[in-house]
Design a protein around this nucleic acid. Sequence first.
DNA 1: GTTGTGACATCGC
DNA 2: CGCGATGCCACAA
Length: 118
Amino acid sequence: MKSDPVPDKKEFFERIWQIVRRIPSGKVATYGQLADLVAAQGWPVSPAYHAWGSRWVGQAMANCPEDVPWQRVVNARGEISERPGGSHRLQRALLEEEGIVFDDRGRLDLQRYRWTGT
DNA sequence: GTTGTGACATCGC
DNA sequence: CGCGATGCCACAA
């Protein structure tokens, strides 16, 4: 018997991707929210996961397939995180196509576009 | 088998 | 609003 904090990290990523696919067009979710949703679905996580789960969501996003609308995932401030590769610029363009408006500083209104998880 | 470093964030002040 | 500090997991050597 070995310790199994998580069945498989790969499965963890797929779990995140599946949730991201549930995000409707014109809506966005935060890393922390996704981490919380995964835990709410019954994922065995450590108590401290709440503090760093957000980063692992970002890890999943970095390795997410093209089938996943990673574009709708933003940080807690409603801002797009700068990522290696410069894809963040594409992300903003895709979100604008969905009707989301950005401020001059590249931020969107989370209270307006935040996905409640339904 | 063990050690050390990294990571797309979050929270608080 | 802005900046600083936090501290988990996993991977690599």
